[in-house]
């Protein structure tokens, strides 16, 4: 145990992993509930997978992959917003296309890049132990931006996720806030690529919020408990994965999913006994 504490306070890569978990949890906890209630997890999946396209292009051009991922996921968010807000019947297809096309472009550019690219697995499945100092700085900035936006426009974001039609009629800026929500999702995706990778990111975006929603009835509380849970899952996953030498992103997802199912069963039993009165 002391050895573990020593490792996590003395090795920079472990300190960075803890810091990355903290900032990612804040973003996940704030955005996850909005994604779950608005039922847009497939949109988020599309945005997440499109990031590989940006990463591929960035690797090919010799730019930091993080910026490529950010650019591609923002572009995907804008295209999906446009399709969705125009009420196009092709929304579903557009999301699927962005999902696969993003990955395809990424794979092609990575293949075209000279040299041996062992990094691709890192983007697909994450590796929290490889988070660099500069990525921590970017994480801090991005999570502050998301926190400020969610705090300031909390009521408007609630309104559009609760009853979109009402916000259209009341001219509450439905389009503006929908685009804002998807842009924040893009930011979240970029921050999470290093932790869980783009393939596993959806689970971590939705499960803590879905779990919190089983027990509390107010969005601000759901957000608070989602942050707490994300943090618990990320840190437990980190420690367990580190000790047992397992892939950490995958470990986090397994813990998070198990916890969801256990709590779901628990809630079902509690609620049924409660209903008998």
């Amino acid at each position: 145990m002391n050895g573990l504490l020593y490792d996590f306070t003395h090795y920079q890569f472990l300190i960075n992993a803890v810091l990355a978990s903290i900032f990612a949890s804040i973003i996940l906890g704030l955005l996850g509930p909005l994604i779950v209630v608005k039922r847009i997890s497939s949109i988020c999946g599309g945005i997440a997978h499109s990031a590989l396209g940006g990463i591929g292009i960035a690797v090919f051009l010799g730019i930091a992959p993080l910026w490529g991922a950010l650019g591609a996921s923002i572009a995907a968010a804008l295209v999906i917003s446009y399709t969705k807000l125009k009420g196009s019947q092709h929304e579903d297809i557009i999301i699927s296309v962005i999902w696969s096309l993003g990955m395809a472009i990424g794979l092609i550019f990575i293949a075209m890049t000279p040299g041996y690219n062992r990094n691709i697995m890192t983007y697909l499945f994450g590796n929290i132990l490889l988070v660099t100092n500069s990525e921590i700085v970017v994480s801090v900035v991005l999570s502050l931006i998301v926190f400020a936006a969610v705090f300031t426009f909390y009521r408007q974001l609630i309104a559009i996720t609760f009853d979109e039609e009402f916000t259209v009629v009341r001219r509450l800026g439905r389009n503006v806030y929908f685009v804002l929500l998807l842009l924040m999702v893009s930011i979240a995706v970029v921050m999470l690529i290093k932790i869980t990778g783009m393939i596993l990111v959806i689970a971590l975006m939705t499960l803590p919020s879905a779990t919190a929603m089983l027990f509390v009835d107010k969005m601000s509380k759901v957000m608070f408990w989602s942050v707490v849970q994300s943090l618990i899952y990320c840190l437990t996953g980190l420690v367990v994965g580190y000790l047992l030498n397992l892939p950490i992103g995958a470990t986090i997802i397994v813990i998070c999913s198990l916890s969801y199912f256990v709590l779901l069963l628990l809630k079902k039993n509690l609620c049924c006994s409660g209903n008998k009165q």
Binding site: P33, V37, R39, I158, T161, F162, D163, E164, E165, F166, V169, R170, M213, V216, D217, K218, M219, K221, V222
Partner: peptide, 15 residues
């Protein structure tokens, strides 16, 4: 305007 309430998510955590 009072919409048909089938248009929103009734499980939404809102009071």
């Amino acid at each position: 305007y009072v919409p048909q309430f089938s248009t929103f998510n009734k499980q939404y955590p809102i009071r």
